[in-house]
Amino acid sequence: MIIAERKPMEEIKGFVADKKKVCVIGCRGCVTVCNAGGTKEVEVLASLLRLDSSKNDSPLQVDEFTLERQCDPEYIDEVSHLMDKRYDAILSMACSIGPQFLSRRYPAERVYPVLNTCFLGGALAHGIWAEHCQACGNCIIHKFGGLCPISRCSKSLLNGPCGGSSGGKCEVSKEIDCVWQLIVEKILQEGKMDDFMKIDLVKDWRSSRDGGPRKIVRQELLK
């Protein structure tokens, strides 16, 4: 899933500094699962903004709404009734796709991203998320013991480990496991080192960002 985290409060306060009426819109997709922009987080942020503004002479009106998903047009349509209320700002608590979809659908609105979209990852434990994919568009993890060297190696090496690997950790940080240490251990455990040592063709990076912004069209799903 997409992992995101809320922007610092100071930055969000800057978004609403000169506003009188705003709406915080959450998303029940990935950002709910990573506890960044679901119904609960929308409630908390709205409450904090109301409390913050209640110190001033003109308290800020903060409304709340949470969509099923902000990355699908049919759900974006569900907030059309809110757009008649003439908000000074829409604060989107989705990954950066949400505010982009809201802006496109409602061009007259000023939409602000309240979350920083961080990476594609999974939960290692409740409250801990780690990057596991870089969406290169050409998955090869089966060749690396089920581990992704693109996203989990600091240098995205396909022929590691590098000289920065020490004691199973990456030189970038002792918090980061050297994925190449893990890959080699896994390959040895599986007894497939001979296969692993075969020279592979250069990875085709056109499916990654090197080919520009990507799009998938599936004819069988089109109306």
């Binding site: 409630e43 908390v44 409450s47 904090l48 109301r50 409390l51």
Partner: peptide, 11 residues
């Protein structure tokens, strides 16, 4: 106990 309970009380 949830954060929102305290925030609502304060609001």
């Amino acid at each position: 106990f949830d954060v929102i309970l305290a925030l609502r009380a304060m609001e």
